[in-house]
């Protein structure tokens, strides 16, 4: 349980051959987001780049501003380990395409400052900083963050790429003009209209939604690659997805006209993105295999609970944050027994 600030030894499997250093892990995950960014640009055009740029700027500037200029405790510059960059990219990818840039910037600032720096910086954060930023934005600007733009009609074409959404460019602290074309996300359609979205559209990402979450296929491929390279504990995404499929199958069997299919649940919303890129953050998830299973299954249960019976159509972000909070408790339960000592009390 002793945390080292700079070196994070992942003890995911018994046959781990090398310790993974933080900058290396960070750069691998950053590289793994590039295809997702590309998919986001394909469907939502330049807006995707603008928003990611804004949130990365917010995150990096905050990191730079609060980092002690000459510090003995932090031997290398924390700007260069890539964690701020990663937080910014992940945050940007969870925003809707029509979000104002200043809001994305603010999300980056909040995520890094109260999600990470306040707790002591890299490796000490209790919650996923990108999700802290997004949860703050969700609570602060509930309308803006649930206003979805449809994907481009001719994805990838030059004109749809360069057509910037006006709402991106709202002046700081001002309302963004409501874009003419808005639509409901697949989850919203299912929840309020009971109207399922064709699974193939979900699979290739041709739906409304947050920038990075729509294209299921890219996320699945990148997730598999990262799991093979042991960038994260494969048990976490697997247990999340299994749990969501299992828990959402029950109501679907009982009332198929009212509840979404398990496949629809898996492919829509931020579930895949959250399971692969957010929940797997090694700092905020349990380190033991048993803990990882409990952690993932609980996230899955909460996602189903919030999506089907909660007030919001999507619950992945809250599910992960809640289980981030419960991680210390899970670690106690899932701690391997030490010989000669009883189990620690709960």
């Amino acid at each position: 349980m002793i945390k080292k600030p700079m070196q994070l030894l992942l003890q995911t499997s018994p046959f781990l051959r090398r310790g993974i250093t933080t900058p290396r892990l960070m750069s691998e995950v950053v590289i793994a987001t590039i295809p997702v960014i590309f998919a986001a640009c394909w469907y939502f055009g330049l807006s995707a780049l603008l928003l990611i740029f804004a949130s990365v700027a917010g995150a990096m500037l905050t990191e730079w501003f609060f980092t002690p200029k000459k510090s003995s405790t932090q031997p290398s510059n924390s700007l260069l380990d890539g964690s701020g960059l990663l937080t910014g990219i992940l945050l940007g990818l969870t925003l809707p395409p029509g979000m104002a840039m200043w809001m994305a910037f603010l999300g980056g600032v909040v995520g890094i400052s109260i999600g990470k720096l306040v707790m002591g910086g890299l490796g000490q954060n209790m919650f996923n900083p990108a999700l802290v930023g997004r949860a703050f934005l969700q609570a602060a600007f509930p309308t803006a963050i649930t206003t979805w733009n449809p994907p481009a009609t001719s994805p990838g074409s030059l004109e749809s790429f360069t057509a910037i959404r006006e709402s991106n460019l709202a002046a700081p602290f001002m309302q963004s003009s409501t874009d003419a074309v808005t639509t409901a996300s697949p989850l919203g359609l299912m929840k309020f209209e009971h109207e399922p979205t064709p699974w193939f559209d979900l699979f290739i990402g041709n739906t409304a939604g947050s920038l990075g979450e729509t294209c299921a296929i890219v996320i699945i491929v990148m997730g598999v690659i990262m799991a093979i390279r042991r960038d994260f504990d494969w048990r976490i995404p697997v247990s999340i997805l299994l749990a969501v499929a299992a828990f959402s199958a029950i109501p679907w069997f009982i009332k198929p006209e009212l509840y979404p299919t398990p496949l629809g649940m898996l492919l829509s919303g931020g579930l895949l993105f959250g399971a692969v890129y957010m929940a797997t953050d090694p700092v905020t998830s349990p380190v033991t295999p048993k803990g990882a299973w409990i952690f993932g299954a609980s996230i899955g249960l909460l996602v189903v609970l919030i999506r089907l019976w909660g007030g919001l159509p999507e619950g992945v972000m809250y599910a992960i944050l809640l289980m981030n909070a419960a991680t210390p408790l899970i670690e106690r339960i899932a701690q391997p027994r030490v010989f000669g000592r009883g189990r620690s009390a709960v």
Binding site: G115, A139, I306, L321
Partner: peptide
């Protein structure tokens, strides 16, 4: 932050 996470239960 805990309170923020609990907002997911609203409704």
């Amino acid at each position: 932050l805990l309170s923020l996470a609990f907002m997911g239960f609203a409704g």
